[in-house]
């Protein structure tokens, strides 16, 4: 229980902590790597992306992902809960159709389509990211609530729990791992789509990459790509930790 059992948890701890250290070091320390990039790419006049600080790009990136994901969790989770209640069951088929069909739409295409409808800027990016993140959240909320064993629900009702008590004390805690997996999928997709969102006018970590690609500046591309990749890995490791915490009762 301690020796062998703890080893993967220690590894996860390390992955999250290690990733965080690397991410913070990259974000804060990128300017001091300027000589390195100058050596690697001697032909470049400007070997470091300096139009915006990486700190502010990272914060903007995280804000875009955070706000869109939060909106998706509230809306998608709410919709998933609603269609699994007796009064909302009629809408379940519709919601599932939209969620499965929508997820075949490539995120980048959804992002691009937001522009003709809403114009350029962070707002269409925010809407597109929210809409896209809704789908896995909805799908997994419905699947998670469906997966709560029928006898557990029967005894919860039989013991005298009301609908709200059943939802918050029994159904949501038991569905949480599956719901969290959906949120994780949504957030990871959003981290990547937010990077591409610099092509529709949102200032994110994708900006150095796009500017670098358009201006043949490989140093910019690498700087942006490294930080985005580190951010995604750190967030994923964080979700791993959260998933373990949510199901800690089953690991005893």
């Amino acid at each position: 229980m301690t020796g062998v059992g703890m080893a993967p948890r220690d590894f996860l701890t390390d992955r999250l902590m290690l990733g965080l250290v690397v991410l913070v070091a990259l974000v804060l320390g990128m300017p001091s790597l300027k000589p390195l990039f100058a050596t690697l790419f001697p032909r470049l006049d400007r070997p470091l992306y300096e139009a915006e600080s990486f700190v502010s790009l990272t914060l903007d990136h995280m804000a875009l992902v955070g706000v869109s994901s939060l909106a998706a969790i509230l809306l998608g989770g709410g919709a998933g809960i609603a269609v699994t209640r007796p009064w909302g069951r009629e809408f379940r088929g519709l919601l599932e159709t939209v969620a499965t069909m929508g997820q075949t739409f490539p995120p980048v295409a959804v992002l691009a389509l937001a522009v003709p409808v809403m114009g350029f800027g962070p707002e269409p990016a925010l809407i597109a990211l929210t809409l896209y993140a809704l789908l896995p959240v909805v799908e997994n909320t419905v699947a998670g609530l469906d997966g709560v064993p029928a006898p557990v629900l029967d005894s919860a009702r039989g013991l005298g729990m009301g609908p709200a008590e059943m939802l918050f004390r029994v159904e949501l805690p038991l569905a949480a791992p599956v719901i969290l997996a959906g949120i994780r999928t949504a957030v990871i997709i959003n981290v990547g789509t937010a990077a591409i969102a610099s092509t529709v006018g949102a200032k994110t970590l994708g900006l150095p990459i796009i500017v670098g690609l358009n201006g043949s500046n490989q140093a910019y591309v690498i700087q942006g790509a490294l930080i985005v990749a580190a951010l995604a890995v750190v967030i994923d490791a964080g979700f791993d930790r959260l998933a373990g915490w949510l199901t800690r009762w089953s690991q005893r």
Partner: peptide, 21 residues
Amino acid sequence: LNVVQTVPSIALFGLLMAPLA
């Protein structure tokens, strides 16, 4: 493969550029 899947596509494209070049 799981870690690869979490890396945003645009970043992976970018990171492959320099070594291939």
